[in-house]
Every structure is written in structure tokens, then in C-alpha cells.
Nucleic acid binder design. Structure first.
Lengths: 150, 150
DNA sequence: AATCATGAAACATCGAGAGTTACGTTACTG
DNA sequence: CAGTAACGTAACTCTCGATGTTTCATGATT
């Protein structure tokens, strides 16, 4: 994976955590995400500090959601991950002497910032509850599709 | 530089090409951009295929702009670069079996695509002529600033 | 005491842009 | 026509951050 898939993975995992009964181990989460348990712990660490999940050690331990999905916006998760870099493209030199490059930077920054604001606005609008509701719709559609074939 | 600075660099360079008299060598361009001549050639190759610049070999050779800046939109340059990846974040799995992940992907793709559309729209609105005009304003301001100190 | 789980450090892997070296080709110059 | 200046290109290396892996320590349950 050449992209930063942490936000995507965490959204996926958090909804499963909500659906799960009792704590989910890093091992189980890793199997679900197709990755390694240490990667899961590392990534969830930020969410724990942000109060999104709780972890318990020992027997029957693991990860638990500490808020309802409706109180969780995609933006909260993004911030809990440390607000990773959004864009793969950027300025060659953020503080150039050359006035030409300064003008280029002004145009590019403006465009990038606007796109970033739109993205952040959307992340703040959509809750994990919304995504879970979409999942439920997909699940019903999926089951109906199977029923028709029966 | 951890970001893709090609668009930024090419915008910068193209305006200098417009201002320059006669062809500019890759070596001179590299010095201006703080990089290597081979990097310049490699990057400009795409712009040449897109008809944005021309290259001539031999004595007094180098790179020349083949269109006026007002006919060049930032988007043209972006496309000539092969439309590089815009976002550093993305989906962990673009075609998952899991319906939860499908729902997550739907939300994230939607948000990312909207942000991308806004960015592309802006890149298509701004011409290199606009940026050059902004440079001219900055230059006047710069000279006035120096004059006041004199 | 044994086991199961997280916490965390240390290191390897990977991909893409960037940088570098080297050599071939083309075109001008004297 | 030899020399030189420039692009064209292949084939590397370097870098950086996310990802993956190994290992050991710590804490909680049985």
C-alpha cells in the first residue's frame, strides 16, 4: 500500500468494535484488517489518547469503543491519528526568496487549502453512525440479493 | 522533500522560461530550482510531449515555452506530468469483500473525490498568466519597499 | 504460577520522488 | 571535420514515512 490507509482502517475497525460483543484483541483486529497486531496497537494508541477507544490487558482483554458511533465524526478519528498529511503534492520550497516562486506558492497553497477545507468539512459532517447506517442498508440489500437467488 | 514538488517546480520554471530570452539549459534551470539537470529533463519531458515546451539540442540549445502563459492553465501542467497522485491518504483496500469496509470506502471516496474535483476545478481556472501577473504585482511592491528604505 | 493481552522499542521492508553517474545522440562552431 | 554544448535515457542510489516484524516487558485474569 503506497497510501496512508490508517484513517480508512480505523473507521472500518471502529464500526466492527461497535458491533462486537466485548473487547476485540489486536490479533483479531489485525486478521480482519489484513495486517499485523503491532500495527493495530500502534495505530489505536492515538485513538486511545483521544478517548475514542479503551484497551484492557490480560485475559479477555482487548479494545473497546468508548463512545457511541453517533458521537464520532470521521474528523475526530483523523485528528486522533495526528492529522496526517492529506496531499501527496506540495510546494518545492515553502519559503522561497524568488518572487516568481512566491507567486506560484500563493496560487498553489490557496488551491490546496481550499480543497483541504472542503475535505475537513466533509469529515466533520459524517459520523461513524452514518457509515454504520449505510452498512446496514448494504447488508439488507445483500441479504435480499441472496434471497432472490434462493 | 517528502512531497511531490513537480507541479510547483514546473510552474516556477515555466514562468521563468517565459521571461527568459532564448532557450534555457537544463543546467541553468536546475540551478534555479535547486536540483539536478537530469531531474529537470525528466520532468520537462512530459511537458514537451504535451506541447507545452520545446527542446533544442546542441549549442545555444535548451528549453523554450511553446505557448503563451495565458493559454496555459495549471491543470494543463498537472496533466502533462501524468496526473500524479493528489492525496497521501486513501483506502486500505479499494475492492473489499467486507460490507463494513465497503461502506467506509463509499464515504471516504466521496469526500476525497469532492475535494479532488474542487482542486482540479481551481487548477483549471488559474492560468500561468495569472500567476505571472501576481508576480509582477509582487515585484512592484518589492521595488517600492526598497525605494522607501532608500 | 501460567497464560493472555497490551505497551513499546528496535529493526526491516517498500514505494515513489528525487538525486546521481554515465553514455549516447544531435547540433552548432571554428 | 574535430570539438564542444546540449538534450535523451538507462541504471543506479538516496530518502522518507507508512507498514511490517521481532522481541521483551508489563499488567490482568484464571
Amino acid at each position: 500500500m503506497q497510501l496512508d490507509g490508517r484513517l480508512s482502517r480505523m473507521l472500518h475497525l471502529l464500526i466492527h468494535l461497535d458491533r462486537a460483543e466485548g473487547p476485540m484483541t489486536s490479533e483479531a483486529a489485525a486478521a480482519m484488517l489484513g495486517t499485523n497486531a503491532v500495527v493495530v496497537r500502534r495505530t489505536l494508541a492515538g485513538l486511545r489518547e483521544a478517548g475514542i477507544v479503551r484497551s484492557t490487558k490480560g485475559h479477555a482483554g482487548g479494545w473497546t469503543l468508548s463512545r457511541p458511533l453517533d458521537d464520532l465524526r470521521m474528523l475526530d478519528v483523523y485528528k486522533a491519528l495526528g492529522e496526517p498529511r492529506i496531499f501527496a503534492i506540495g510546494l518545492a520550497d515553502p519559503a522561497p526568496q524568488c518572487l516568481v516562486e512566491q507567486a506560484v506558492n500563493a496560487s498553489m497553497s490557496e488551491a490546496l487549502h481550499r480543497a483541504e477545507r472542503l475535505l475537513v468539512e466533509q469529515l466533520s459532517t459524517i459520523t461513524l453512525g452514518d457509515i454504520a447506517a449505510d452498512f446496514d442498508r448494504r447488508l439488507r440489500g445483500h441479504l435480499e440479493g441472496r434471497a432472490e437467488h434462493a
